[in-house]
Design a protein around this nucleic acid. Structure first.
Lengths: 136, 136
DNA sequence: TCGAACTTGCAACGGGGTTGCAGAATATTT
DNA sequence: AAATATTCTGCAACCCCGTTGCAAGTTCGA
């Protein structure tokens, strides 16, 4: 409760009920969420546009990060504190083809890759699709 | 010219000018293309819907594969012959933040990852974003 | 408690992608 | 070469995603 406000404060955001609710949904659900997921959960309380704007703000401030997907964008909490200046993510995302959930495997780092001469990598995004332990 | 028809035939597709044009655009442009790219190139000749359907058909038949991106789906040619039954891709995709082009690095394989107990991986998708040799 | 700054809801819009259907083109059979 | 079955295309319509402008409401610091 207070922790939500604290998180928002750290990132220089005003505390509003929408932001608190979106943030707590991410914390409770644990997996990566799409705008649609949030609208399903909170849509009766807030306008779609407000949810879009909340996601955009959280992204910019480093509270959440994008998760690539073959059927639409999702978002997940940044575990280590990212900031407005710098997002740092090198963990793997796993999407289950059975239950459809996408999760961050925080402990698994993306292996280093030796790129050819001239390539200057900045961000890495590895999505593995398959069956997760729950659906096994 | 004849090669286009041949490719379509191999995949049990009728030869139509739209399919020939889309296929030859992929071959000429070399990089990953979005529907919008194709519409820009061929939009005066064909309806948007036809281009969508062509992409979908090519996907199903194993002529092209999806390329994930943080700002929308793209497609690229399958180099090794994929089929309706099986798509097999383990190469890396590189997106240049300067010119915006996304390319397949066919020679670079995605390194193996040791997943925790219970995970059964099926497909891998690694996108690296940064600056490409051309924009260096 | 007041005002400046920020946030929200509403309306509207553009783009992405899909579906149904009728007409056109392709392949096949004779 | 013509007829037929099959497939493909264009059009219209539709829904979902995401954004923008603006007026009204809320937050927070002085």
């Amino acid at each position: 409760m207070d922790q939500l406000r604290e998180t928002l404060k750290v990132h220089h955001l005003r505390t509003t009920t929408c932001r608190e609710d979106v943030l707590s949904t991410f914390i409770n659900r644990k997996n990566a969420l799409s705008h649609g997921d949030l609208e399903g959960e909170l849509g009766e309380n807030y306008d779609r546009v407000t949810i879009y704007r909340t996601l955009k703000t959280f992204l910019e401030k480093g509270i959440i990060h994008k998760v690539l997907d073959d059927e639409g964008l999702r978002y997940a909490l940044c575990s280590h504190s990212c900031s407005e200046e710098k997002h740092q993510h090198d963990h793997i995302h796993f999407k289950c083809s059975a239950c459809g959930e996408t999760n961050c495997l925080e402990n698994l780092h993306i292996p280093a890759v030796q790129l050819p001469e001239g390539y200057h990598p900045e961000h890495f995004n590895l999505l593995i699709q398959g069956v997760c332990p729950k659906c096994n």
